[in-house]
Computed example of a mutant assay.
Amino acid sequence: MPDRFHKPTLFPGGMFEAFLGGDDPAQISRVAHETAQALLARVREEGDPAVVDRLVAYTDAHGIDALAELWSRSNAKTLPGALWRIYLLRLLIRQDAEGTALLFQRGIEISTGIDPVVAGAPTPAGPAEVTELADRILRGVFEGDFAVALERAAAFCRVTAAGCVSVADDRDVVDPERASELTTRALRFTRTAEELAACARLWRTDSLD
């Protein structure tokens, strides 16, 4: 197995090997849940900021593939499903910080609710600020109230979805193809927000596994 799958070494020995040993859906699901639970429990117990730093930056150095193999096929309303969505959201933001910042800022401007406050909307919401916000949300998974981190991520998605819809309306006449892409993106952000919010509710009742 490539060395990049082993850094940082945070999972109990044998879990990666067990996952890669076959395609049995039950085994894959079991390992996904076990790794997610072990990772979260160990990092929270140690409380080491350096470990949290490595986990936040994990996909920057090693890509998303290892996490995808572990968690991407998990049900959305599970712990591994929630972790996968948080990491994927951060990756999306970092890959297009400028575009995401534009959509997020538009969402803030038209928002009439508390989602910008819940998300922790920076002022201004430029690329650097939105990227930092994504890091802070991910850090909250390992350091703070896990449900709050999920709710912040959900709020971010809702604000960005609103921005997508608003910009799509602006582009509809002059660039209908781009407007359609933004509408599809808005639906994806909305669905992700619903999934993360559901996970937060489950976590608060000790039902997220």
Rank of each mutant, 00 (worst) to 15 (best):
R204T: 04
P127M: 00
A97W: 00
A147W: 00
L150F: 07
T59S: 15
V173R: 02
D115V: 06
P122S: 01
G81S: 05
L138G: 06
D3Y: 08
V118T: 05
A128C: 04
F156E: 13
P2C: 00
V51N: 04
Y58S: 13
R94G: 03
E132G: 07
T100Y: 00
Q27F: 02
D115I: 08
A198E: 15
L196F: 12
T123L: 09
R158G: 10
A162I: 08
L208W: 01
V148Q: 01
A38M: 12
L182G: 11
V56F: 02
A153Q: 06
P124I: 05
F11P: 08
G126D: 15
V56S: 03
T100K: 00
I108F: 12
K7I: 11
L91D: 15
A153D: 11
A179P: 09
A186K: 08
D115T: 11
R42W: 11
G144K: 02
A154M: 14
F104K: 00
S111P: 11
L92K: 09
A76H: 10
E45W: 11
Q105A: 15
R185I: 06
E143G: 01
P176K: 04
R188H: 10
R201C: 09
R30P: 08
A82P: 13
P127L: 02
T183L: 12
L150D: 12
T192H: 04
D96A: 01
F5D: 15
P8W: 01
A66M: 13
A198P: 12
Y87K: 06
A76Q: 10
G140P: 10
P49C: 03
L150E: 09
V167F: 04
G113R: 09
I93W: 00
A121Q: 04
G81L: 02
P80V: 05
S74Q: 04
A168N: 08
I28G: 00
L67A: 14
D3Q: 11
E129P: 01
S72K: 08
Y58C: 12
L150K: 01
M15N: 13
E34F: 12
L187R: 09
T190K: 11
S207C: 03
A18H: 06
C199G: 05
R54F: 09
P124E: 13
K7Y: 13
S72Y: 06
A82T: 07
A82Y: 06
A198H: 14
V31P: 08
V165A: 07
A198F: 08
I28E: 02
A97D: 02
V130G: 00
T100G: 00
R188C: 05
R201T: 14
K7P: 06
Q27H: 06
V117F: 12
Y87V: 04
R54V: 09
L208A: 01
Y58T: 10
E34M: 14
L103H: 11
L182Q: 07
V43N: 06
T59D: 15
S180F: 14
K77S: 13
R178G: 08
S207H: 04
C199F: 01
A38G: 14
P25L: 04
L67H: 10
I93D: 01
F104I: 01
P124Y: 11
A147Y: 01
A57D: 15
L91E: 13
F146L: 02
E98W: 04
S207K: 03
